[in-house]
């Protein structure tokens, strides 16, 4: 359980970090941010990057602020930063509620929001949030900066549109409406373990009808996504048992579930149906 040797690069500026990753990416060099996923993988020697570009001392990457209705989350913003009202209104409360499901306290003090997005584990809560809210991911390289809409970002399990020579410098999350409600529910076999499935919902209720419904799943497929079929059922409906049950049934049916040695696709489908119902109940409360 000892990582393979590597050379540790400690840039102080984003320009230096970009230059270093451009130089070492062809040699399987990697960015080291919080290290809460990369370092275990290195301990198992599933990854043996000969160069690590450590961005923990790069100036300006800890920005967490609202600009023009979007919450900008810099590359070194840790999970723990979302504990209390990282953003105004329901967005901050939503992110805080989700954060409590991510790993454990000493992991949250180091792991980063953008690191989770770059790693793109199917079970990542932040990836699911990014998909649900239509985040914009900002990647930087020697070629400059480009903005990637989340719909073009996830490609497969742990595979994204980021190029090896790019640094995910910022994620931008559109704020929820001031009257938005939310629900989040995940299932994992142990507290803090990887989720087998999760459901997320945000919506508004206007004159007794659901508006602006967003429904997303995570952990259950190769990468998280919104389910338009479910949102179509929610929008315009009267909140209550009937629509929740129908929406949860459609969510389960729409799933293209991951299967592994201990978790069948059918089980994930059942889980999504149950978790969707629980998430809807939170909206009601």
């Amino acid at each position: 359980m000892k990582p393979a040797p590597f050379i540790h690069h400690k840039p102080r500026t984003i320009e230096d970090a970009v230059r270093l990753i451009a130089e070492f990416a062809p040699d399987d060099g990697r960015i080291l941010a919080g290290g809460q996923s990369l370092v275990p993988i290195m301990a198992f020697r599933m990854a043996k990057p000969p160069h690590l570009v450590d961005i923990n001392d790069v100036a300006g990457l800890d920005r967490l602020e609202v600009v023009d209705g979007m919450l900008h989350v810099g590359a070194r913003v840790r999970h723990a930063a979302f504990r209390q009202n990282a953003a105004p209104g329901p967005t901050g409360a939503f992110l805080g509620a989700v954060m409590r499901n991510i790993a454990h306290h000493p992991i949250r003090t180091r792991g980063t929001f953008c690191g989770s997005l770059a790693h793109a584990d199917p079970a990542s809560e932040w990836c699911a949030v990014a998909a649900l809210l239509d985040a914009v991911l900002v990647a930087r390289s020697l070629d400059g900066q480009r903005e990637i809409p989340v719909r073009d970002y996830f490609e497969a399990v742990m595979t994204t549109a980021l190029r090896p020579d790019e640094i995910l410098v910022e994620a931008r999350l559109p704020l929820l409406a001031p009257d938005a409600r939310f629900g989040f529910c995940e299932f994992s076999r142990r507290s803090g373990d990887f989720a087998i499935a999760m459901c997320l919902v945000t919506l508004r209720v206007e004159q007794g009808r659901i508006r602006d419904a967003r429904f997303g799943i995570g952990g259950a497929e190769a990468f998280p996504r919104r389910l338009a079929e479910v949102e179509a059922i929610l929008d315009g409906a009267t909140p209550g048992e009937t629509v929740w049950a129908e929406a949860a049934r459609v969510a389960a049916a729409a799933l293209d579930p991951l299967e592994d040695a201990v978790t069948s696709g059918a089980y994930r489908r059942d889980l999504v149906q149950s978790l969707a119902l629980r998430a809807f109940k939170q909206v009601e409360a």
């Binding site: 290290g35 809460q36 370092v39 275990p40 301990a43 723990a80 306290h105 000493p106 992991i107 003090t109 180091r110």
Partner: peptide
């Protein structure tokens, strides 16, 4: 901050 010293 509490951290895992095996992951630093």
């Amino acid at each position: 901050e509490t951290v895992r010293s095996c992951l630093m």
